[in-house]
Design a protein around this nucleic acid. Sequence first.
DNA 1: GCTTTGATATAGCAGAACTATAACAATAGC
DNA 2: GCTATTGTTATAGTTCTGCTATATCAAAGC
Lengths: 127, 127
Amino acid sequence: MILLMDLSSSRPRYRQIYDQVVEAVAVGRLAPGGRLPTVRRLAADLSVNLHTVRRAYGMLAGAGLISLERHNGARVLAALPPSPEVGAWFSTQLRQLVAEGLARGLSPDRMTALSRQAVVGLCQSQS
Amino acid sequence: MILLMDLSSSRPRYRQIYDQVVEAVAVGRLAPGGRLPTVRRLAADLSVNLHTVRRAYGMLAGAGLISLERHNGARVLAALPPSPEVGAWFSTQLRQLVAEGLARGLSPDRMTALSRQAVVGLCQSQS
DNA sequence: GCTTTGATATAGCAGAACTATAACAATAGC
DNA sequence: GCTATTGTTATAGTTCTGCTATATCAAAGC
């Protein structure tokens, strides 16, 4: 587990942590059952406050990706069958993204191609 | 042009305006050459400060979607051929979204289907 | 029993988001 | 030409978010 912080980014630190764990889980670099560092440990590694890490972990637990354990940091959960709301969430996000792409001149075909490419690209890197 | 504000949303007001104009342009509800309300006018309609609208309009102009005119509000520009950076931006956003979908249990096939559906759905509603 | 660890509480600071006002410069309409 | 409208800029204040600092508690591992 190696995480990188971009301090100059406008993206909140807790969001950067969240995003990177999500991606690691998505590509299988973090398998179900795998352990994440403890809150304090990761905070120290990233030179970040304990609460910042805790917030990221809390969001990850809320999304059902990890479970927080008293003494072992956190553990990645096996992906549960997606609730209907996950599909709805995905569609909403995607709609906004595609709308902006359209408005900025990307053709539907191009976006469809890029979409497939993104899905395939991520799945390929699943180890 | 009807815009709605969700005051309870965590999404900034200027962002909500931006998003809705983007979608209106994408769907063709706002055609190239079409006019947007003046800054003050829209601010009054939305019960929002002048600067909030101005910020949204500034971002839209920065993204090349509209041109600001001294006395006529703003005008929608014809979509220019997308710069390479637009494609890169789209791919980056999409990658993050797909990663989260994967991590939350959506299957690749399902996401590919939803993607196509989003693109088609938006294009269909183009008037 | 001591230490580690997640959890909770409080306080402070910097910056973002939003508002309130005022003023300037360009211009459309008369 | 005059006036009102409009984009633009400036300044200042308020509220909220992101982040940090510190301290404490309760549960569990060793």
